[in-house]
C-alpha cells in the first residue's frame, strides 16, 4: 500500500487550476519525482474529466444537489432504470453535450514565464436549433480586442473577425447549413499586437427543424 504523500492534498487543487506560480511549479516538479502522486493524479484527472463531461446529468433530475439535509435517494425499482439512463447519458454527454466547462486554454505568457490563458463565455447558439443561427454571440472579454469566429463541420466552414461581441452569419453560409447537420463554433480573442489572449470552448449545435 502506498504511503500518503504530503503533496497528495494538492492533486485536486492542481487539476482544478487552483494552484498558481511557485505552488504550481513545486507540485509539477513533485509529480515528476513521486510515482504515487502521479498515479493518483492520473486517476483523479480521469474522474474529473468524466464528471465534467457529464455535468448535471450526473445527478438525476429528482436528486439534484442543493437542498440542505435531505436524503435524496429513492431506492429499488428506479435504480435499474436510472443506471441505464445514466449510461445512455454518459455516451450522449461525451459526444453531444456542449463543453461549456471544458479545459481552460493556456496560451499566453506573462512576464514571469508562467503560462496562463483566458476563457470567453459563449452565449449562443448551442444545442438543438429549429433553423440555422443568424448570429454568434459571446460575453465581452475586454477592450481593444479582435475576435475571430470559426464555424466547423468536418472542417472550417466559415471564419470572420469582428471587434464586437457578436457577429452575423452571412445568408449564403446559413443556406449551406443543412437540416440535421451537426456543427460547432469557437471564438478567439487577439490583442492588438496579434497575440492570442482568450479562447472559448468549442460549442456544438445541431440544426433540427420542428416537425
Amino acid at each position: 500500500m502506498m504511503s500518503k504523500c504530503r503533496f497528495e492534498g494538492q492533486i485536486e487543487n492542481y487539476l482544478l487550476k487552483r494552484l498558481e506560480g511557485t505552488q504550481k511549479e513545486e507540485f509539477e516538479e513533485h509529480y515528476f519525482n513521486c510515482a504515487s502522486c502521479f498515479q493518483r493524479l492520473r486517476e483523479r484527472d480521469l474522474l474529473i474529466r468524466i464528471v465534467k463531461s457529464r455535468g448535471p446529468a450526473l445527478v438525476a433530475e429528482g436528486d439534484r444537489a442543493g437542498r440542505p439535509g435531505r436524503v435524496l435517494w429513492r431506492p429499488a425499482p428506479r435504480t435499474l432504470a436510472a443506471a441505464a439512463a445514466g449510461l445512455v447519458l454518459v455516451l450522449a454527454a461525451l459526444i453531444l453535450v456542449p463543453r461549456f466547462r471544458g479545459t481552460t486554454p493556456e496560451f499566453v505568457l506573462t512576464g514571469d514565464g508562467t503560462v496562463r490563458g483566458g476563457t470567453i463565455a459563449v452565449v449562443a447558439p448551442a444545442g438543438e436549433l429549429p433553423e440555422p443561427p443568424a448570429s454568434f454571440e459571446w460575453q465581452p472579454a475586454g477592450s481593444d480586442l479582435e475576435f475571430r469566429v470559426y464555424l466547423f463541420q468536418s472542417d472550417v466552414v466559415w471564419t470572420a473577425a469582428t471587434r464586437s461581441n457578436s457577429i452575423a452569419l452571412p445568408d449564403e453560409i446559413r443556406r449551406r447549413l443543412a437540416d440535421g447537420g451537426e456543427y460547432s463554433w469557437q471564438v478567439k480573442a487577439f490583442a492588438p499586437q496579434g497575440g492570442l489572449t482568450a479562447v472559448s470552448d468549442r460549442v456544438r449545435f445541431q440544426v433540427k427543424p420542428a416537425r
Binding site: L16, L47, I48, V51, K52, R54, G55, P56, L58, V59, D63, A65, L72, R101
Partner: peptide, 10 residues
C-alpha cells in the same frame, strides 16, 4: 456520493 462528486468537481 454522486452529489458530492457533482458539487466538488463539476
Amino acid at each position: 456520493f454522486k452529489e458530492v462528486l457533482y458539487l466538488y468537481y463539476f
